[in-house]
């Protein structure tokens, strides 16, 4: 859908939480993909002026250029809650969100650096007492105190939900890709540093972090103890065994049997 097609919602204040991402191939800092999609989703609802961007974390020059990537989407300013790397950013974000008065907070499903557990939106929603929906593909409409959204399910499926506002929502790869970030607005945009309280993340202090170990997907589990069975399990071709075979039926009767199974499995919509 072209973003121009969506009606802008008047009077709605939207905030997007953004983080510094990491390019999967080169590891260079960038705007995080899911976060950028969240911003894009916000821009489908409101004009850039009514969209607040919020980042909690450090603001080194390298990270700054990544954060400017969000400004390059046409938004004038980004608030940076200055937080050291070992801080728990949730209290700071919560306080800031309460101050801002946003009714809708958009978040990428998870970050691309650090723990990236995807917990922040859940903790915020819990603390703020707001609605939460995850995995949004699209916000279809916002109407007063609620909004209608499409939630992405696995296997490309979609579900329509009605969500009471205020709400925190998370966005992942199912949502529309973020618009290109433009150099001019990114350069001009303002990074507003906000000093705030710092809560140390004590729990994470004892963690060991290492580069991810490659983990090939499981092949077959051959449990059999006997050599013959291990042999057979490897060399035999896939056979179900015990299936129902219907012969001598009319095509209609065959079709009915199939239809019954399709209905039972719930794949027929």
């Amino acid at each position: 859908m072209r973003r121009e097609d969506i009606k802008q919602v008047q009077g709605l204040k939207v905030a997007a939480l953004v983080s510094v991402g990491r390019h999967p191939v080169t590891g260079r800092p960038r705007r995080a993909d899911f976060d950028a999609r969240a911003v894009e989703m916000g821009l489908s609802l409101v004009a850039p002026e009514n969209m607040s961007l919020l980042h909690a974390g450090e603001c080194s020059p390298e990270r700054e250029s990544a954060l400017r990537g969000y400004l390059g989407m046409g938004i004038g300013a980004l608030d940076v809650l200055d937080q050291p790397p070992e801080a728990d950013i949730v209290p700071a974000l919560e306080a800031r969100l309460r101050e801002m008065g946003a009714r809708l907070v958009l978040c990428g499903a998870r970050g691309e650096m650090g723990e990236a557990s995807g917990l922040v939106p859940f903790l915020l929603a819990e603390r703020l007492g707001w609605s939460l929906v995850s995995g949004l593909a699209q916000i279809e409409s916002v109407d007063g105190d609620s909004m209608t959204v499409l939630q992405a399910l696995p296997r490309g499926q979609r579900r329509r939900l009605k969500v009471r506002l205020p709400a925190v929502v998370t966005v992942d790869a199912a949502a529309q890709a973020a618009r290109q970030s433009a150099y001019g607005p990114a350069r001009r945009g303002e990074l507003r540093r906000i000093e705030g309280e710092v809560t140390p993340d004590a729990a994470a202090r004892d963690w060991n972090t290492a580069p991810a170990k490659k983990r090939p997907k499981r092949l077959k589990i051959v449990k059999a103890a006997s050599a013959r069975d291990r042999f057979k399990a490897a060399a035999a071709k896939a056979e179900g065994g015990g299936g129902q075979v219907l012969t001598g039926l009319s095509p209609q009767a065959g079709a009915e049997a199939i239809l019954k199974l399709l209905r039972e499995e719930g794949v027929l919509r």
Binding site: Q180, A182, P185
Partner: peptide, 15 residues
Amino acid sequence: TMEHGNTPNKGGEVL
């Protein structure tokens, strides 16, 4: 490109 961020089709991706 630099002001609108509007390079069509694969343009954005390539950049």
